[in-house]
Design a protein around this nucleic acid. Structure first.
Lengths: 166, 166
DNA sequence: TCCATTTATCTTGACGTCAAGATATTTGTA
DNA sequence: TACAAATATCTTGACGTCAAGATAAATGGA
């Protein structure tokens, strides 16, 4: 009987007409995302980051040398708005972890580049982050994790399908 | 090959040392939570609500007659801070959907009560919300949904366990 | 070539959230 | 009874986010 079960029990008592299986699944998914988010923030914080700044640095790092992308490319990968990205980049630049370099060929454009300090920081942070993810998911064995990942992927595809029909 | 797969492929190329199964699972969980959140907001918005105000009204509704809880009880159910709850209640009160009634027995305390308008609004909104949840999860059959819910619950318990050891 | 359109980025204002702390009241114990 | 501790709620200041729009530059068709 977890917190989600308690909520479902209340609804079942008050509104026996409702179909609650989707709510169970959606509620647990949300709680899990919150709990995992909290568990991951601890590692980010230990490196002076938060999930927003980690997200940007990690995107640059995994893009490969020379660890540089435009704000538009970062927006596509991270799925945030342009205003959010400007704000994230301002803070990372103030921390000396990225540089904005003006494009030589397009005066509207900028490339965002990891500094040496930024590369060193994210490189160590990612290793710890992945180890932390391993720790956080240790409640399921590898087969269960793979099955969970498969079902999440299938549902995600279905939701994005439903979304595109709106 | 979804967005999460593309991210994993980049990491696999750049950092073949990393164990990526937990990242796959955690990434899909997060994307799914975002996509479901967006899909659910549409119904809330159609009733003049957002997920924050829906959360409070639904908690009051499912608590049963007389549809009244203290701010502290609402904080426990919704897992937000007291400042967040004060802000939510201020807005709902301004919309005429809840009332704050001073306790007769404890001058520090208040009960938050659904108004008639608040009850009517949440009653219809919940019905549509549950139908919408059903639509959003239609990509999985009932067996798959139950299995997904089970695995999410098991992992959630494990994460909260790991959390409590920090 | 010109200019409307598109593209790339940044700015503004509002919102929801949190952590920390303020205020007022009640409780428990000496 | 008196008063320290606990409790209930609200306030403040900062942050991350978004939607809408501003600015500047590049593009492409007449």
């Amino acid at each position: 009987m977890d917190n989600v079960d308690r909520i479902l029990a209340q609804w079942a008592a008050e509104r026996p007409d409702l179909q609650l299986l989707p709510m169970a699944l959606i509620g647990r998914n949300k709680r899990l995302a919150q709990a995992l988010g909290h568990g991951m923030e601890i590692v980010f914080k230990a490196h002076g980051l938060n999930s927003a700044s980690f997200d940007v640095l990690a995107t640059l790092r995994r893009s490969g040398a020379p660890y540089a992308l435009t704000p538009s490319e970062l927006i596509d990968w991270t799925m945030v708005t342009s205003g959010t990205m400007t704000n994230r980049l301002d803070r990372l630049e103030a921390q000396g972890l990225i540089e904005r370099v003006k494009s030589a060929t397009d005066a509207r454009s900028v490339t965002v580049q990891l500094t040496d300090a930024g590369f060193q920081l994210i490189e160590g942070c990612v290793s710890e982050h992945v180890a932390n993810q391993h720790r956080l998911t240790a409640g399921l064995n590898a087969n269960e994790q793979a099955e969970l990942s498969r079902l999440l992927g299938k549902l995600l595809a279905g939701v994005e399908q439903a979304q595109s029909l709106d």
